[in-house]
């Protein structure tokens, strides 16, 4: 997993995310839903935090094993890549 991502992702920054996890991309018109951990990861990456910092945020919020969190974050980032959001 990349450790270096400290530049905010412009595509993630533009996403509108509501409290229920509904995500809307104002540029492409795409919309999808995510759970609270997905929302946390997107917000973290959008603020320019590294992947590892996002893992730390997940561990702290959900009190889970760091390796599990790392795997989940990595999978989620792959999904974001698939949707061309990063």
């Amino acid at each position: 997993m990349s450790q270096s991502s400290t530049t905010p992702h412009p595509r993630l920054s533009r996403l509108a995310i509501n409290e229920e996890g509904f995500v809307f991309d104002p540029q492409t018109g795409e919309s999808f839903t995510i759970n609270s951990s997905g929302s946390l990861i997107i917000k973290s990456l959008a603020q320019g935090r590294s992947d590892e910092q996002s893992v730390a945020a997940i561990v702290e919020t959900y009190d889970i094993d760091p390796d599990d969190a790392r795997r989940d974050v990595r999978d989620f980032i792959e999904q974001l890549r698939l949707y061309r959001l990063i």
Partner: peptide, 22 residues
């Protein structure tokens, strides 16, 4: 600008959403 979200069998837009695509 808008993105077509759904179209009819004739290809006509039925649902759309406004987008700001620079």
């Amino acid at each position: 600008a808008m993105k077509k979200m759904s179209i009819t069998a004739l290809g006509k837009v039925w649902t759309g959403v406004t987008v700001l695509h620079p």
